[in-house]
Design a protein around this nucleic acid. Structure first.
Lengths: 165, 165
DNA sequence: TGTTAACCGTTATAATATAACATAATATAT
DNA sequence: ATATATTATGTTATATTATAACGGTTAACA
């Protein structure tokens, strides 16, 4: 039987525990390979970011973290975010001042995001065509592209159906 | 004789007064056509945003505005920005929390920006190819695109030459 | 075991943005 | 012209996002 095609967006009932475990496992091995210290705080922040597929705010993380660590302060969270960003374990969504887990962790890569404005779910698409045309368009103006922020807002398939129905 | 090709980036000695005048004139006529009140504050904020081709911060605008209007406060600036954004006279650069003048004012349009990380100059490219591929890539995932944030950082032609030399 | 570097705790504050309510200016209806 | 409604601005306060600075602790390693 054919494999079910992987969707970029997740149903409400997908096995999300598996997503979290997978993300943590990858992070463990990336940190181990690169001799990075995957401390408890860093691990816990990553886990909280992966608690669903929606972008989370730094102060939202802080609030949650404080339930288990009373003395958590903004730098506690921002330092962990800095570590996770530097090592490509998460991305920042600039237009929402928020953070999501990275789907291809551990290596620098240009990425693009589809963000549902109704359910807030984010899908990371690291599309070579988008990337290529951005480089081409830059080159046409003599511009040397170094980094791209591509955040696309709209309606995910599920939310479109709910609207139409 | 052939017309000089318009560059997206501007030299230091281009006639920038003409850029400002043109932007203000267009804004006047757009507001007039749409019965929008182009008040002194709004006009002045737009003029300050156009004071060069770099993105400006809201609190930078506030500081400047206060030189001529002592009682200016954050809402003074943010309300003007809101008006100018709503009516497509400026854009917000999300990744820099800053604002630039719009090159095709008065009509909603998907836009992309090239941002020089050295001189900070921003070029607005409203490229149909970038736009089309974003819609296509969205569609491939069943995603209905409504709005896009495309901010590309790198080196403008001039700053590349300075680095290479 | 002493030294160094990395990480974290803690306090303070910077930077960005909005809420809420009062007053003023403008547009509209009579 | 005048009353009324609407839009814009003034003003104070506060919410939200993020970083600086310094001291103490933990982990790496010579």
């Amino acid at each position: 039987m054919a494999a079910k095609p992987a969707s970029l967006f997740h149903t409400k009932k997908h096995n999300h525990q598996a997503c979290i475990r997978s993300a943590l496992r990858k992070a463990e091995s990336i940190c181990s390979e690169n001799e990075l210290r995957f401390t408890h705080i860093r691990k816990r922040i990553l886990e909280l970011i992966w608690s669903d597929h929606e972008p989370v705010l730094a102060y939202g993380l802080l609030k949650t973290l404080r339930r288990e660590k009373e003395n958590a302060e903004p730098p506690t969270v921002y330092r962990a975010l800095e570590f996770l960003l530097e090592n490509q374990l998460i991305h920042k969504i600039e237009s929402l001042n928020s953070y999501v887990g990275c789907n291809s962790p551990g290596t620098a890569h240009p990425s693009q995001f589809l963000i549902c404005s109704q359910c807030n779910q984010v899908a990371e698409i690291d599309d070579p065509d988008v990337n290529r045309i951005i480089f081409q368009q830059g080159a046409r103006s003599g511009f040397r592209v170094e980094q791209q922020t591509v955040e696309i807002k709209g309606l995910c398939p599920t939310c479109q159906n709910h609207d139409d129905g």
